[in-house]
Amino acid sequence: MEVRTIKVFTTVDNINLHTQVVDMSMTYGQQFGPTYLDGADVTKIKPHNSHEGKTFYVLPNDDTLRVEAFEYYHTTDPSFLGRYMSALNHTKKWKYPQVNGLTSIKWADNNCYLATALLTLQQIELKFNPPALQDAYYRARAGEAANFCALILAYCNKTVGELGDVRETMSYLFQHANLDSCKRVLNVVCKTCGQQQTTLKGVEAVMYMGTLSYEQFKKGVQIPCTCGKQATKYLVQQESPFVMMSAPPAQYELKHGTFTCASEYTGNYQCGHYKHITSKETLYCIDGALLTKSSEYKGPITDVFYKENSYTTTIK
Rank of each mutant, 00 (worst) to 15 (best):
E2G: 15
E2K: 08
V3A: 12
V3F: 14
V3H: 14
I6G: 09
I6A: 14
I6H: 06
I6K: 07
V8S: 04
F9Y: 11
T10G: 04
T11W: 08
T11D: 09
T11V: 08
V12W: 00
D13T: 06
D13K: 00
D13H: 10
N14D: 14
I15D: 11
H18F: 07
T19I: 11
Q20Y: 10
V21P: 10
V22G: 04
V22D: 00
D23Q: 13
D23L: 08
T27W: 15
G29C: 03
G29D: 10
Q31F: 13
Q31T: 12
Q31V: 13
F32C: 15
G33S: 04
T35I: 13
T35N: 10
Y36E: 11
Y36H: 01
Y36F: 12
L37R: 12
L37M: 11
L37N: 11
G39L: 08
A40N: 14
D41G: 07
D41H: 10
V42Q: 09
V42M: 13
V42S: 09
T43N: 02
K44H: 07
K44C: 14
I45H: 12
I45A: 12
K46H: 12
K46S: 12
N49C: 14
G53A: 14
K54T: 12
K54M: 12
T55Q: 11
F56Q: 01
F56L: 13
F56H: 11
V58L: 11
L59Q: 09
L59V: 12
P60F: 09
D63I: 07
D63Q: 11
T64W: 08
R66T: 12
E68S: 08
E68V: 07
E68N: 11
F70S: 11
E71V: 12
E71T: 00
E71S: 00
E71H: 11
H74L: 10
H74P: 02
T76G: 10
T76N: 11
T76F: 11
D77G: 06
L81Q: 04
G82S: 14
G82F: 15
R83V: 05
R83S: 05
Y84K: 08
Y84P: 06
Y84L: 06
M85T: 09
M85F: 00
M85A: 07
L88E: 05
N89E: 15
T91H: 01
W94C: 05
K95T: 15
Y96Q: 00
Y96H: 11
P97V: 14
V99K: 06
N100L: 15
N100Q: 15
N100P: 03
N100C: 15
G101Y: 03
L102H: 15
L102G: 08
T103H: 08
T103W: 03
S104I: 02
I105C: 02
I105M: 03
K106P: 08
W107F: 02
W107G: 02
W107C: 05
W107D: 06
A108H: 00
A108I: 02
D109Q: 08
N111F: 12
N111H: 07
N111S: 01
C112N: 05
Y113T: 08
Y113R: 06
L114C: 01
A115R: 00
A117W: 02
A117R: 00
A117P: 07
L118E: 00
T120F: 06
L121W: 09
L121I: 07
Q122S: 05
Q122R: 06
Q123S: 03
Q123M: 02
Q123R: 04
I124G: 07
I124C: 08
I124V: 02
E125T: 07
L126C: 08
K127G: 07
F128P: 04
P130E: 11
P130D: 09
L133N: 02
Q134V: 09
D135H: 10
D135W: 08
D135Y: 07
A136G: 07
Y138C: 14
A140L: 13
R141Y: 09
R141D: 05
R141T: 10
A142M: 13
G143H: 04
G143T: 04
G143A: 05
A145D: 03
N147K: 11
F148R: 03
C149D: 02
C149M: 11
A150C: 07
A150W: 00
L151H: 00
L151G: 01
L153C: 07
A154F: 03
N157I: 00
K158Y: 01
V160F: 07
V160H: 01
E162V: 00
E162G: 15
L163M: 11
G164W: 03
G164H: 00
G164V: 06
G164K: 01
V166C: 00
V166D: 03
R167A: 01
T169C: 10
T169H: 00
S171V: 10
Y172C: 12
F174A: 03
F174Y: 03
F174M: 05
Q175W: 03
H176D: 04
D180R: 08
S181P: 04
C182P: 07
C182H: 06
K183I: 10
K183P: 02
L186R: 04
N187R: 14
N187E: 11
V188P: 01
V189R: 10
V189H: 12
K191N: 13
C193H: 07
C193N: 04
G194H: 03
G194R: 04
G194Y: 00
Q195N: 12
Q196R: 14
Q197A: 13
Q197P: 07
L200E: 08
E204P: 09
E204L: 05
E204V: 10
E204Y: 04
V206Y: 02
M207L: 02
M209W: 15
M209L: 09
M209V: 15
T211L: 10
T211G: 08
L212V: 08
Y214E: 01
Y214T: 02
Y214S: 00
E215V: 03
E215I: 01
E215S: 07
E215D: 15
F217H: 00
F217Q: 01
F217R: 02
K219R: 14
K219C: 09
K219S: 11
K219H: 06
G220D: 02
G220V: 03
V221P: 07
V221Q: 03
Q222K: 12
Q222E: 11
I223N: 02
P224V: 14
T226K: 15
T226G: 13
T226E: 13
C227M: 01
G228A: 00
A231G: 07
A231Q: 00
T232M: 11
T232A: 04
Y234R: 09
L235M: 01
Q237L: 12
Q237E: 09
Q238Y: 01
S240G: 03
S240P: 04
P241E: 06
V243I: 06
M244Y: 04
M244P: 03
M245C: 08
M245K: 00
S246W: 04
S246K: 06
A247N: 01
A247Y: 05
A247L: 00
P248T: 02
P249Y: 00
Q251M: 15
Y252D: 08
E253L: 11
L254Y: 06
K255C: 01
G257V: 06
T258H: 08
T258M: 13
F259G: 01
F259M: 00
T260G: 00
T260P: 03
C261K: 07
C261S: 04
A262M: 04
S263C: 09
S263D: 10
S263H: 15
Y265A: 00
T266V: 07
T266E: 04
G267H: 04
G267M: 10
G267D: 00
C271T: 07
C271E: 10
C271M: 14
Y274T: 05
Y274K: 03
Y274L: 10
K275C: 03
H276W: 08
H276R: 01
I277T: 05
I277V: 03
T278F: 07
S279G: 04
S279T: 01
K280G: 13
K280Q: 15
K280N: 10
K280T: 09
K280C: 12
E281V: 00
T282L: 08
L283Q: 03
Y284R: 00
Y284S: 01
Y284Q: 11
C285T: 10
I286V: 01
I286R: 02
D287N: 05
A289I: 01
A289G: 08
A289Q: 08
L290F: 14
L290H: 15
L291C: 10
L291D: 03
L291V: 15
L291S: 15
T292E: 09
K293Q: 15
K293H: 15
S295L: 12
S295P: 08
S295D: 15
E296I: 12
E296T: 15
E296D: 14
E296K: 09
Y297L: 02
Y297I: 08
K298D: 02
K298C: 14
G299E: 00
G299P: 07
P300M: 15
P300T: 11
T302G: 02
T302I: 00
D303F: 03
V304C: 03
F305K: 04
F305P: 03
Y306M: 04
K307F: 10
K307S: 12
K307Q: 11
K307I: 06
E308C: 10
E308V: 08
T312N: 09
T313A: 14
T313F: 13
T314W: 10
T314V: 13
T314H: 14
T314G: 13
K316A: 15
K316Y: 15
